[in-house]
Amino acid sequence: MNFYSVLKELCLCPSVSGREQKIREKISAIVSPFCDEMRTDALGNLIAVKKGVGGGKRVMLAAHMDEIGFMVTFIEDSGMLRVATVGGISFTAAAFGEVVSENGVRGTIIPEEKVKPADFKADSFYIDIGAKSKKQAEAKVRIGDFFVLTPHVQKLAGGRVCGRPLDDRIGCAVLLDIAERLRDKALDGDVYYVFSVQEEVGCRGAMTAAFAIKPDIAICLDVTATGDTLGASPMACRLGDGAAVKIKDASVICNEEIVRGLCETAQENKIKYQKEILLFGGTDTSSMQLAGAGAAVGAVSIPTRYIHSGNEMCDLSDAQSCAALVSEYVKKIG
């Protein structure tokens, strides 16, 4: 598969937490030749299985399909839309941005007049779709409809890409890449490619998927912050320095054996890697760790600048390192 064009296709398909049908359909079509079985569970997780030949460990690899966004809660007489946030929106980043609804209605997200940036919150924002009245707005939008910051992706200098929502469509693209790399490799254990839902609202989907799969080993593919932007808090993780092997984030401490195994695999295969300790934020890793009787978990992260803004930035070479590292690791243990 062409990584960049898959990434672009996934990014351009809006799918807020809890409304992942469209992206799921797209991913299903891409992953189906790489797996033996596919199913969608009650919450909407897409679970694709590559069957093993017998014995071996059950390995679960997960990337989330959902993204942050807005839900329409009320339509004013003026036709303006009141919204609630879905996931951790940064309003300073979203203010005056372009938005688009799940049904393709375009608009822009605006703070009320006289509200200072420090006081930005959902109640002080509205979406203007250009409607002249409540009636006109109601013809286009219903309460409960979702909006996202308008997706876009472009290539920048140095093999880097910029746009949104790279969190976590780039993880999904990496997971698809891994599935392709493992397609023809006979492994003892089953490998589960899970495209999870509702990560941005509390890592909900991975919890139920892991409960059903009961993996021995689970690895999460998600983005992580970096310490290489101006004024950033100290963090030993940089764009372009390779796959980030997670040691901990605020929600999880990864299994030490998996961390070691991933690092050794990277060294053996000369794959560029770095270690990641994220002091804030959590990922599906923690949900997979404590579902049911628990699993040994790890995570390989794609270093990403400006997460949750309208312009997230990644280095494509890091994504390639992530795909190479996880597929080699699975070959080793699977």
Partner: peptide
Amino acid sequence: TNRLGGAAAGAFS
């Protein structure tokens, strides 16, 4: 370090 603690998984098993 974890809101639930490993006990959640340990008790389940």
